[in-house]
Nucleic acid binder design. Structure first.
Length: 488
RNA sequence: GUGGUUGUAGCUCAGUUGGUUAGAGCACUGGUUUGUGGUGCCGGGUGUCGUGGGUUCGAGUCCCAUCUUCCACCCCA
């Protein structure tokens, strides 16, 4: 009791006001997902550790929250760590858990730790698909809105517990799926931002990046090079070249990679050539230009072709805010084709996604391609709050409060109260005959619009005194008249 | 995981070069008003100064550790 209660690092409570806003975001996304034919599923917070590891690259393994074993297994786990530490100390000096070889720790952890909290929704989904493959009709469109956990250090827009809103289409390699997903992004942000906030949907294709890296013969270092390219907007072209060189690639090759991806000024020169082009035509021009630069590398050309298809369709559908960004890479290891990211100024990405050709392979189901997106609800929440974009939410809380004058009056009010509730009006009665001022203040703090006062006069006449708390005006109404007032 | 930053009343924050009994606003509560709130006036309570050590005659203030907050890096929604 003496200690102040608290919650774990990077987690948050949500107040009633915050929940109304969060639900507004979830409901908007859900509504759009359903409109595109997606069906909802949920999976457990915990997965088996081996389901989660080894899919998101080495880095993400350290960000997974692992669940300690219980009982006898916990004892064995602790004993093995202890004895390994001791035997290591016999050989070398001063070995503690801090400087302990992480490979050995990991080995022991994997031996005893069975469960972990999910790190994203895509990997559990792949597991779900494989497990339920006989009951699923492919292509399967599912959406899933649930929290995920990452043992990351919290900072702006980054939490240890946060909600992802995923939509994936699995069992089809048609690029029409990409078109749908990008249109979904367009729909969701048009609705949430109401045209009052700029956002950019950046699109690229991993095959293009592959083509570029292959053209200099450094495909062994693909993952790392791609991470370096992704930092362009942060560290600049020179920074990217430097970082690629540090991977052991020659300066010449690094420069070539950078010039192929960076394509400075291309967008503006296309604009000069085609002054009347709309945005998407501009992007198509950029794609064509990059295609010429890349040359005949088959992967690169395939990537360009795929994006051209997508952009052509989006053009016909009048999608907005779409940009081709050849430097967009995204770290996640499992992406193989289209990659998508949505950004708003001064915020980390609020939505991301891409195509993965072999996520289910790990679980024994080969040759199933999928593509998906994920909205970061918590970041969207912060963006909407920062830009003051929440609509006013009315009628969500209590609309009518009955003031409690005492036992007799209370008995008289109770049936009336339930009449209102049956009519679908959110209402309550103050549960005790407290002072008037206290009851009125309660109504005021809860933003209750109407207060009903029933004393001896009202009980005799059957007319309730209804006070509008916004205008301060009062009128005498029967319960039926009050219902008409609130419903009509 | 690396670097920096923050912590004082329920909330937002003052608090001097270390020095008596740690302050303000908001909120809460009592009265003004025994059936009328949100704007008035008068009164009231509120603290292990994040936690644990240390320096000092004396620590909210200085030092160390630890936790937490926020920010950047890494990476990501």
């Amino acid at each position: 009791m003496s200690n102040k209660p608290s919650i774990p690092k990077g987690t948050r409570d949500f107040s009633p006001t915050e929940m109304v806003r969060r639900n507004y975001i979830f409901d908007t996304i859900k509504k759009v997902y359903k409109r595109y034919g997606f069906q909802q599923i949920e999976t457990p917070a915990m997965e088996n550790l081996d389901t989660l590891v080894g899919t998101g690259g080495e880095e993400s393994d350290t960000l997974i929250f692992k669940v300690l074993p219980r009982g006898e297994t916990l004892n064995k786990f602790i004993n093995e760590i202890n004895s390994t530490l001791q035997s290591a100390n016999k050989i070398g000096d001063e070995i503690t858990l801090d400087n302990f070889n992480p490979l050995i720790t990991n080995h022991i952890v994997k031996k005893y730790v069975e469960q972990a909290l999910r790190y994203d929704l895509t990997v559990p989904f792949a597991r779900y698909v494989v497990q339920n493959q006989n009951d699923i009709t492919f292509p399967f469109r599912r959406f899933q809105i649930q929290p995920v956990w990452r043992a990351d250090r919290p900072q702006k827009g980054r939490y240890r517990e946060f909600y992802q809103c995923d939509a994936d289409i699995i069992g089809s390699d048609s690029l029409l799926n990409e078109v749908d997903l990008i249109k979904i992004i367009d729909d969701v942000f048009s609705e949430l931002f109401q045209g009052k906030l700029n956002y950019t949907v950046s699109i690229n294709n991993r095959k293009i990046l592959q083509g570029i890296v292959e053209s200099v013969g450094e495909q062994d270092k693909f993952e790392q090079i791609v991470v370096a390219i992704d930092k362009l907007d942060k560290i600049g072209k020179e920074g990217v070249i430097k970082e690629i060189c540090q991977l052991g690639v020659s300066t010449e090759k690094a420069k070539k990679i950078a010039t192929l991806t960076v394509v400075p000024g291309v967008r503006s020169s296309i604009k000069e050539e085609l002054p009347n082009a709309n945005n998407i035509e501009l992007e198509l021009g950029l794609l064509e230009a990059l295609g010429e630069h890349i040359g005949s590398n088959p992967n690169g050309q395939k990537g360009i072709k795929e994006l051209e298809f997508i952009f052509e369709k989006l053009k016909a559908l009048g999608a907005k805010n779409i940009k081709f960004d050849p430097t967009l890479a995204r770290g996640l290891g499992y992406y193989t084709g289209t990659i998508i990211e949505v950004k708003v100024d001064n915020f980390p990405s609020i939505c991301g996604g891409g195509r993965y050709d072999d996520l289910t392979g790990k679980f024994g189901l080969k040759d199933v391609s999928g593509v998906g997106i994920s909205f970061g609800a918590d970041r969207i929440y912060d963006v909407l709050l920062d830009n003051d974009l929440y609509p006013e939410f009315k009628g969500d809380s209590t609309q009518v409060l009955f003031i409690n004058f005492g036992e007799k009056e209370q008995d008289y009010c109770l049936p009336l109260l339930f009449q209102l509730r049956e009519a679908g009006i959110n209402s309550e009665i103050y549960p005790e005959a407290a002072k008037m001022k206290k009851q009125m203040t309660f109504a005021n703090n809860k933003n209750i619009k109407y207060v009903v006062l029933v004393g001896s006069d009202e009980m005799q006449s059957g007319k309730l005194t209804v006070k509008n708390m916004e205008s301060g005006e009062q009128e005498s109404l029967t319960i039926d008249e009050l219902i008409v007032l609130l419903k009509g």
